[in-house]
Every structure is written in structure tokens, then in C-alpha cells.
Amino acid sequence: MPNSIEDTTTRLSREVPTAEFKIDDALVAISILMTSVVTAKRDTPDVPAARGQATIRRLAKAQAALIDASGDVLRVHGDLLSIGREVAGYDLHECPRVAGHVAPLQAVA
């Protein structure tokens, strides 16, 4: 049985920001790990400097992949907003999560 547009919109309005948040969390975790690895490489005198370089490059590659994924999910978010306008006639200028925190134009004037 197909979902109604409202049900689908409600589900997506929860899932898209959750995905964005989790990618950001992963990016923070990789950044913290990168800091720890570089610090360990610098502060461990018995290990040759070149020894940890491959690990650092792999972490940088993972970090870049997360940045790319974040950009792609943000584009998906924009695509879904456009689809909502076209299909459901929603007049959304911001995603629902952000729009709730913006003062209405009447309150500003």
C-alpha cells in the first residue's frame, strides 16, 4: 500500500537530517583519530617518521570521502525539497528543521 505524501514527507524530514548529523559525527571522529595518530607519530621517537605516513594518508582519504558524502547528502536534501515543491506544492524555502527556527516575516517587519 503506497504511503501518503504527508507520511513520506514526515519520514524524510526525520531521516535526512539524521543522515547529515551522522556523517558529521563520523567526520568529527575521523578528525579526532587523525589528531591522535599524528600526535603519536610526532611524540614517539623510536618509530621512524615515515612509518606512520601510510596510515595518515588512509585517514585523510577516509576524511575526504566523508566530506564528499556530506556534500552529496546535502544535494539530496536540496533535491528532495525541489521534489516536495513540485509534487506536493510545498512552499519550502528552508528545510523544516531549520525553518522552525526562523522568525516569520511578519514578526520581522
Rank of each mutant, 00 (worst) to 15 (best):
L33K: 05
L33D: 08
T35E: 15
S36Q: 13
V37L: 04
V38F: 00
T39P: 06
T39V: 15
A40H: 13
A40N: 14
A40R: 07
A40L: 13
K41N: 10
R42Y: 10
R42I: 10
D43I: 10
T44W: 12
T44R: 02
T44G: 02
P45W: 13
P45G: 13
D46Q: 14
D46I: 14
V47T: 10
P48G: 02
A49W: 11
A49N: 09
A49V: 06
A49L: 05
R51F: 12
G52L: 14
Q53L: 11
Q53I: 03
A54L: 05
A54V: 03
A54D: 13
T55N: 04
I56E: 06
I56Y: 00
I56R: 01
I56F: 01
L59A: 08
L59H: 05
L59K: 09
A60Q: 11
A60G: 09
A60F: 00
A60W: 00
A60D: 09
K61I: 08
K61H: 07
A62Q: 14
A62V: 07
A64K: 10
A64Q: 13
A65S: 01
A65K: 03
L66K: 00
L66G: 07
L66H: 00
L66R: 00
L66N: 00
I67E: 07
D68E: 04
A69Q: 02
A69L: 04
G71E: 03
G71V: 01
G71L: 01
D72F: 01
D72M: 09
D72T: 03
D72E: 09
V73A: 04
V73F: 05
L74S: 03
L74P: 00
L74V: 02
L74G: 01
R75E: 07
V76H: 03
V76Y: 12
V76P: 00
H77V: 02
H77Q: 04
D79P: 00
D79T: 12
L80T: 07
L81H: 03
S82I: 11
S82A: 10
I83Y: 11
G84S: 08
G84Q: 08
G84I: 03
R85T: 06
R85D: 04
E86V: 05
V87Q: 02
V87W: 00
A88Q: 07
G89C: 02
G89Y: 02
Y90F: 09
D91W: 05
L92K: 05
H93F: 06
E94C: 03
C95F: 10
P96Q: 10
P96F: 07
R97A: 13
V98R: 08
V98N: 05
G100K: 09
G100V: 14
G100H: 15
H101G: 10
V102M: 15
A103H: 15
A103E: 13
A103L: 15
A103T: 13
L105A: 15
L105Y: 15
